[in-house]
């Protein structure tokens, strides 16, 4: 067989259609067969590595996290100053009926989280975590939830400490909403919404 013929033979389109069809069919059968699931192990490892994994490490703005943590600590100290010896509290914070956290139409993932969390007693720390997490540059989940790693690393300890100090989850929730989440939102709002559509739902931002 000549060289040219061999080259043509190698480069010509396959005519072994029957073999190819059988490879496809048996390949599909094999591919569809059950296999050991590694998903749980993979995700456990992924979540374990999340605080230091590359995407999140890049996403996190540690300067902002530091600032957010500072604000939380100031709130913590303010709380302690406000309720030194009186578990019943001298000035129970009454939720503002005009609070934007519940009534303002949603404008973004973190706002969704804030609204939802504010409507659920005892969960404003989630809102605070979402807000500072977003402020720190941490992407939110589509449903507005924040990353577990962020929550575990920063928000939970600080805000959990607030709740432990108060012995009153409802009161702490009110306090956090009024004195932490709301001021924080006002502080970060310009950055928070930068680059986002101004009237996502047809409502002017406040």
């Amino acid at each position: 067989m000549g060289t040219l013929h061999r080259i043509i033979e190698r480069l010509r389109p396959t005519d072994d259609g029957e073999l190819e069809e059988r490879l496809r069919r048996e390949g599909r059968e094999c591919r569809a067969a059950t296999s050991p699931s590694v998903a749980d192990r993979v995700m456990r490892q992924v979540l374990r590595e999340t605080p230091t994994s590359t995407p999140l490490r890049r996403a996190l703005r540690w300067d902002r996290i530091g600032a957010a943590a500072g604000l939380l600590l100031v709130a913590h100290l303010a709380w302690r100053a406000a309720t030194p010896d009186d578990p019943g509290g001298r000035e129970h914070v009454v939720p503002d009926p005009d609070s934007p956290w519940v009534e303002t139409p949603h404008r973004g993932p973190s706002r969704v989280a804030v609204d939802r969390a504010s409507a659920a007693p005892g969960l404003p720390w989630v809102a605070a975590g979402a807000l500072v997490g977003r402020w720190a540059g941490l992407p939110a989940e589509p449903d507005g939830d924040i990353q577990p790693a962020w929550r575990l690393a920063v928000a939970d300890p600080l805000l959990g400490e607030l709740q432990r100090m108060s012995h009153d989850a409802t009161r702490t929730s009110d306090f956090v909403v009024q004195h932490l989440v709301r001021p924080l939102d006002q502080l970060v709002r310009p950055r928070f919404w930068r680059g986002e559509p101004a009237q996502r739902d047809g409502t002017e931002d406040r």
Binding site: S35, S37, M43, V46, T50, P55, A59, P139, E141, P142
Partner: peptide
Amino acid sequence: RARAGSTHAFAELVGRLERPLFH
């Protein structure tokens, strides 16, 4: 989404691709 930090999205990727990858 996973690149933006979503672990939920990555979990779905794992669920969809673990079998083909294993075989």
